[in-house]
Amino acid sequence: MKLLKSNAMQDDLIRLGSMLGLSIYLVTKAGAGQWEKNMAVTGLWLVIITALLGFWQIWRDKRMTPEEKREAEREKRDERSRMIQDRAMRNCWSLEDAVLIIATIVFVFRNQPSVYSILYLVLVVRELACVATRWWLERKY
């Protein structure tokens, strides 16, 4: 399908599909608490809104004039735009780290090993993945 040619679109579809699946599972899971169901419903709404925004963007892109398409392509290639995107991703990564660390500490104090051990594992895996990626990139460049 021509629509799925874009890698970014494939990534978005995989992410949305995963969130959709998780949300549906959490809502329908037997024994799920009210808090879990509320979170799952919130997640479902986010997936629906994101999907609608995605379809709206596809519809808008199809109606672009050749000049507008050229500008949009240039925006993607533009080095300043790429720099901004890279910095935004790095800042978000740092923010995620902070949130995970704080959450781990909170659950340690709440004495919930089932939660904090998973959070801690996620932190460790993220750092190892970062180190491995940097090592690979240093070899590549």
Binding site: E71, D78, E79, R80, S81
Partner: peptide, 22 residues
């Protein structure tokens, strides 16, 4: 030079430094 107008604006105002290629 195949960049966006916003990049030119940022270059002129000194808020962004061009790469060697640009």
């Amino acid at each position: 030079v195949d960049v966006t107008r916003q990049t030119i604006i940022s270059l002129e105002s000194g808020r962004y430094n061009a790469s060697l290629l640009l």
